[in-house]
Amino acid sequence: MDWKLEDDRPIWTQLTEQLKRRIIAGVYPPGSKLPPVRELAAEAGVNPNTMQRALAQLEQDGLARADRTAGRLVTQDAEALEAVRTAQARVIVQRYLNEMAELGYSREEAGLLPQKEETI
C-alpha cells in the first residue's frame, strides 16, 4: 500500500486515515506491533513529528496503544476495529452515491448496480 498525500489538508490527518486503512486491510494485524515512528516516517517520506502526531491520533481513536516494552501495538478490540471499518465503508458508499447522483442515477438504481456488475 502506497502513502498518498493530498495537498489541501494537513498531512497528519491524512496519515491517520491511511494508518487506519492499513490496519483494517490487515497490513498491521490486530495485536501486532506497529513499526517505529522513524521507520514509518521514512517510509512515507514525512517528518517524524508529523507521523508521531498521526499515531497519537490513532491511539486517541482507540486503534493502537503504547506499550512500554513492545512499542506501539495495534488494538485487539474487535468492536473498535469494526467501528472504523464501518465508518470507512460509509465514506466510500457516500462518495459512490454522490458521484452516481451526478450521473443521474437515483439512489435505488445506484444501489442495484453493484449487484448487476457481479453477475456480468
Partner: peptide
Amino acid sequence: VDNIREKEGKSVDA
C-alpha cells in the same frame, strides 16, 4: 505546515 494547510486549505507549495 499543518497550520498553513489548515488555515489556507492549500499546500505550502501552492
